[in-house]
Design a protein around this nucleic acid. Structure first.
Lengths: 242, 242
DNA sequence: CGGCTGATTGATGACCGTCAATGAAGGTGG
DNA sequence: CCACCTTCATTGACGGTCATCAATCAGCCG
């Protein structure tokens, strides 16, 4: 059941799912690097077409018919699911190189919205299937990427199920830093409520926790949604193990 | 980042991961059905070898060198991750048909233990790789199964991040029932602390919540770790949307 | 029957959510 | 270019949910 329910379990679902998962075609992508449009080493480069979306735009919604796969070339996207009464859980934030829409069902399983202005490559499923047939190695790459997603999802379960507010925020900041190759200065383009809905907290608690980290000199909050990690070791202690 | 962190992010991890994911080779498996050892429609049937493990046995631990993939043929297994101070998050419970160890890294990412006496098929990675090469369709099946896992993991994030104790327990019970094809009577072979560590609660809260469900006639607790869902609709309301 | 493990129930309080007010920031129009 | 307005972040007061600590209670096995 739950996390490790088998296919059999999902066959009972009322709403067929269309997974939105992430895949990096650029394993060495550094800080804030955008995916290059015509990279010969990128098997996806010539597929579909790209478009720039403004900030706070919906790309697709939970339940929409799913015909395409998407890749983020630059910017940031949030994926979330909502409960009927409006409570929201942000599944993840996507950055350059991440993909969404890799499942095998007829509907999208959650909603995707841009956080910042974002360049998105839209690839029709048929084209992706053709590529998988033509290049078996590519199918493995997809499997490997999905697997990485799953690992990240499991870490997030530990965070949501067993960490305190302070541990959650510290972990989140360290993850952002890691994603940028361990940079001391990180971007926080999303709002407090996005962070809260990702960590299973409220905006007030996120704000209070950041204030506390600020007053204990572990971080410094800069203008323009940027943030400095002043004491990585102390933050790692606070995070209580990834 | 986090759930949708790309490969790039994971490349920074201190401990390489070895995913343990579930895969059902028997999409129509009914209630409590065990996987048949010599099913001709099962491409895995002839691989590796099977062994019965007693209840409460460790199959492998987080950090162990990973050389094999496992499939549960009968019984139940729990997968969990632990924080340094001992807090535990149970990632999922595996039943007949589920697989673990499908990732591409050198170490297991978490610990697997039997809950009940369990028959486990152990398949060396090399054999699985050979099968993937020989049967491209099998590789796709693996991808599809991993994808289903990811979907389940995302549902679990919603549960852990946004649901109340009552909603968590109700959801958990309904999932167990769904997994058995919607049976009214379900098995709870795991202890209260296992349930608690899966739902992000304590044993006391799980116990109190079950007592409340019992006194409001939504469930009935039977001997031998069994449980009756007396009012599925009311439970579904309580669950607050899957 | 006695001892052990796990479940239940109770009392208490901490953490964090809720409600509310203030403050800061960014965008638009005069 | 500044003033206004809207949106979001911050801070405060309070209360509820659930964790913690602790004491039975029930079931199981020798």
């Amino acid at each position: 059941m739950s996390t490790h329910a088998a296919i059999a379990a999902h066959a009972n679902r009322a709403v067929p799912g269309y997974l939105v998962s992430a895949l990096a075609m650029t394993p060495t992508a550094g800080m804030g690097a955008a995916v290059q449009p015509r990279n010969p080493a990128d098997p996806l480069a010539s597929l579909g077409h790209s478009k720039v979306h403004e900030r706070e735009t919906t790309l697709f919604s939970e339940g929409d018919a799913a015909g395409s796969v998407f890749r983020v070339l630059s910017g940031m996207v949030r994926l979330y699911k909502m409960l009927p009464d409006g409570r929201r859980q942000i599944i993840g934030f996507l950055q350059a190189g991440d993909m969404m829409g890799l499942a095998f069902a007829s509907q999208y399983l959650y909603t995707a919205e841009t956080v910042t202005a974002t360049t998105i490559q839209r690839i029709p499923r048929l084209e992706l299937d053709a590529l998988m047939d033509a290049q078996p190695a590519f199918a493995r790459k997809l499997l490997s990427a999905t697997t990485s997603e799953l690992i990240a999802a499991q870490d997030q379960m530990v965070l949501l199920g067993r960490k305190s507010a302070a541990e959650k925020v510290a972990t989140f900041l360290l993850r952002l830093s890691d994603r940028k190759g361990g940079e001391r200065t990180i971007d926080l383009p999303m709002g407090r409520s996005d962070i809260a809905d990702h960590l299973g907290l409220t905006t007030e608690t996120v704000s209070r926790t950041l204030t506390k980290l600020k007053s204990t000199r572990l971080i410094r909050i800069l203008v323009g949604g940027k943030l400095d990690l002043l004491d990585r070791d102390a933050l790692a202690d606070l995070a209580g193990g990834f």
